[in-house]
Amino acid sequence: MASSKNIIALKSILHKEIHRFMRIWVQTLVPPAITISLYFVIFGSLIGARIGEMAGFDYMSFIVPGLIMMSVITNSYSNVASSFFSAKWQRNVEEMLVAPVPNWVIVAGYVGGGMARGILVGGIVTLVAMFFVDIQIHSFAIIIITVALTSATFALGGLINAIFAGSFDDISIIPTFILTPLTYLGGVFYSISLLPEFWQGVSQINPIVYMVNAFRYGFLGISDVSLIHSFAVLGIFIVSLYTIAMVLISKGIGLRS
């Protein structure tokens, strides 16, 4: 399967994808750093002091993992969504379609590019956070696994979004109307144990709750949900989204007339 030609093709797509977001770093890498600083100033210093502790940690320390996760989610999603859509728009996606590149290589290349941006931005945001708060690490392995799986999930989501998209508007609808609300309600800013029972139940169907909590566990060693559930949710999402993406590409949806 993974012949040397496929590896070269995969490297080319990855190289192209990483080069793309590095070239436009002002649009891709700087904004998350600014956003996170604002969150720290407002929620950490100004309001955080009045909130006091959350789940036994000062508020700043509590929200850091969620904020990092938030930027990983948005960046891995939007990287693939805009890059793949723009390749459709300019028709340079045809360069790949005419070549003997297997579909899994196309998916892996774009998803890898999205993960690279998600993880790089996550790293940048973590560095910025270190100016505001002492970062502690409970389990480095959990942090890495969670960030990798989460960025893969949302990169796949961004790819599927781009496959269906017919205009640039179509790649901002999902982030605005679905991703942002789910993230804000995903336990980034609060422990869901604070919610009334009904809303705790509702939160259980929000996948982002599982990702944020697994990630927070990696830093603080606390979580509102069981880690097994978190990784199960991530696993199910990755397998289903990958399958959907492969079916769409091999049918040529949005790519071949």
Partner: peptide, 24 residues
């Protein structure tokens, strides 16, 4: 019709295309 990435340098376009075909 032109179907390359307008923002990419010529050399990159050629090297990418070769890569898709598995050329070292």
């Amino acid at each position: 019709e032109f179907n390359f990435n307008q923002f990419e340098p010529i050399m990159k376009i050629l090297l990418n295309q070769a890569g898709y075909y598995g050329v070292e």
